Simulated scan of single mutants.
Amino acid sequence: MVKLTIDGIQVEAEKGTSVLHAAESVGIKIPTLCYIKDLLPDGSCRMCMVEIESRGRTKMETACTAQVSEGLVVTTNSEKVRNARRNILDMLLSNHKTDCFSCPSNGDCKLQELCFEYGIERTTYSGEQTELPIDDSNKFFTYNPNLCILCHRCVNTCHKVVGRGAIDTMERGFDSAIGTPFHIDWADTNCESCGNCVQACPTGALTMKRRKNYRKYQIDKKVLTTCPHCATGCQYYLLVKDNRIVDVEGANGASNKGLLCVKGRSA
């Protein structure tokens, strides 16, 4: 165990613990976009930047990748940290469509939520934005690369959680996008349409097609139940609008840990 200070709070954590987890253990919330619990950190979004002072030197690091050590002094919400996060959001918006009213994830978008929290209404960077074709070939969900922030949550979910590996990050630089091998249609890959990548997406890039029938803020209640399609016992929430089931959302059940198969999510 090592002792460190986070925002003036004395914290004791096991060696090898991330600063992000150590902060969470004492109720300090650090914003993330790419982080997935129980997976090795990706560190691609940079939203969890914090100030870390060690041996008289202070530097900015990502809380998801930085590990605790004896005597660290961590600051998670200084003006320097908040400015760094504002710059990150500004850059993300520089290549992101902001017509939120027409987006199925309006009101249920982590990027939108963070931009509101940090006061970012529009990008300060002018220039070209990517214009890539929308892949609507899958029966159940749509991928709009023009709303993607390349956080890799969908890829990491597909590869490391589901174990399917149907998608990956394609091309490089400005042309980077989440795609399928050899650019074939999503429907023609080994994707089994489980939709776990969609649930992992923090923006409107991946959305279930049935989302066009409702917005998240219209949901009256969520009902926890057990999937009836097999004996595994996966749990999910039924999303109810106007006394009708409009969608389901994977719950952290003992047998499924938030995951669902195509039957559980869409049957």
Rank of each mutant, 00 (worst) to 15 (best):
47 M>F: 01
7 D>C: 04
229 H>Q: 04
169 T>V: 15
109 C>D: 10
112 Q>V: 03
252 N>D: 14
10 Q>Y: 01
56 G>L: 11
230 C>S: 09
232 T>I: 13
140 F>Q: 07
232 T>F: 08
107 G>M: 08
120 I>W: 05
124 T>Q: 11
247 D>A: 12
144 N>M: 02
140 F>S: 04
10 Q>L: 15
48 C>L: 07
175 D>P: 00
267 A>M: 14
217 Y>I: 05
258 G>D: 13
86 R>G: 08
55 R>Y: 11
187 A>N: 10
182 F>C: 05
15 K>A: 14
14 E>W: 00
64 C>K: 02
71 G>N: 08
125 Y>W: 09
176 S>F: 02
262 V>K: 12
14 E>S: 04
196 N>W: 02
254 A>G: 02
142 T>L: 08
178 I>A: 05
92 L>W: 05
178 I>F: 06
256 N>M: 08
14 E>N: 03
79 E>K: 14
229 H>A: 00
40 L>S: 14
78 S>R: 00
194 C>T: 03
21 H>E: 15
246 V>D: 03
33 L>P: 04
261 C>K: 09
127 G>K: 12
11 V>A: 03
213 N>P: 00
32 T>A: 07
3 K>P: 01
56 G>Q: 11
147 L>Q: 07
146 N>W: 08
167 I>D: 10
120 I>M: 12
256 N>H: 09
264 G>W: 11
187 A>G: 00
19 V>W: 05
259 L>V: 00
130 T>H: 13
179 G>A: 05
4 L>P: 03
29 K>G: 00
47 M>C: 01
46 R>Y: 12
223 V>W: 01
136 D>I: 09
244 R>I: 06
214 Y>T: 01
69 S>L: 09
36 I>D: 10
155 V>P: 07
135 D>I: 01
154 C>M: 08
175 D>Y: 15
86 R>K: 15
233 G>L: 06
213 N>H: 15
47 M>A: 01
54 S>K: 15
230 C>T: 09
182 F>H: 11
231 A>P: 00
84 A>H: 01
137 S>L: 08
111 L>N: 10
140 F>W: 11
219 I>N: 07
126 S>D: 10
254 A>V: 10
227 C>V: 06
35 Y>H: 15
210 R>V: 13
159 H>E: 13
145 P>Y: 04
148 C>V: 06
41 P>I: 03
233 G>A: 07
129 Q>I: 10
93 L>P: 07
59 K>A: 09
248 V>Q: 00
146 N>L: 03
265 R>D: 05
152 H>W: 10
200 A>R: 07
164 R>F: 02
53 E>W: 02
211 R>D: 03
197 C>H: 08
106 N>D: 13
162 V>D: 15
149 I>C: 06
50 V>G: 01
256 N>K: 05
146 N>E: 02
68 V>C: 13
182 F>D: 10
46 R>E: 11
185 D>P: 13
137 S>F: 06
143 Y>H: 04
52 I>P: 00
220 D>R: 10
124 T>P: 02
